[in-house]
Amino acid sequence: MGVAEVFTEFGDIYLQSVLSTWLMTAVCFAGGLTLGIIITVLRVSPIKPLRTVGDVYVQLFRNIPTVSLLVIFVYALPYLGATLPYRTCLLACVILIVSAFASENFMSGINAIGVGQIEAARSVGLSFTQIIRLVVIPQSLRTTVLPMTNLLIATLLTTAMGSQVPLTPPELTGMVNYVNSRSVAGISAFVVSAICYAGTSVVLGFLGNRLDKKVRILR
C-alpha cells in the first residue's frame, strides 16, 4: 500500500488526527505556560515554603517519565475517587510536565538578567512592581523565545503518548497503529505521520528563530 493509497483510504481521519494533534499541542503549551508562570512566581516569592513547593514541583515533573504519570492519571486516580476521560488525562499529564520545563526556562531567563540591573533599577528609585514590570519580565521573556520554541516542539512530541490510551480520533502516532490494524499499510502510515511531525517542527522552529532574531538581547 503506497502513501497515495493511504491518503485516499484514510485521508479524512488523517486530517482529523493532524488537527487534533495540533489542537492538543496548542492547549498543552498554553496550559503549560500559564501553570509555569504560576510556579515561577512561587519560586521567586519571598515566602520560603512556597519556594520549596515550586522547586520540588519542578524536580518531580521534569524527572517523571510521561508514561509513568499517564498511568497514574488513567489507572490509579479512579481508585482515589477521580475518574477522568482519556483525553483529559493526557492533556493534564502533558500540561504538568510542560509547566515544569517552562518554569525552568523562565527561571534561567530571570537569572540571565544579572543582579546589577536590579540594583541599578532600585538606585534610580523604581519600586518593586516597576522593577518586575519594566526590567525583569520584558528581558526574561525576550531571552526565553528560543527555549520556549524548543519546548513547543517537545510538547508536540510528548502528545505522542496519546497513542497509549484510546482516543478518537487517534493522534499522529496512534494513527500508525490504527492504519496498520486495518490494512497492510506497511511503511506508508509511518511515513505520513513522520512527515506531519517533521513538517510541523520545521515550521515552528522557523517561526521561533525569526521571532528570536527580532527580539533577542545581545549581551
Binding site: 505522542a160 499522529l172 502516532t173 500508525v176 497503529n177 509511518f190 517542527s201 520545521v202
Partner: peptide, 13 residues
Amino acid sequence: DLFRSLPSLLLIY
C-alpha cells in the same frame, strides 16, 4: 533534524 523532530514512540512503532 528528522530524528530530533520525531517522537521516540513513533520510531518504536
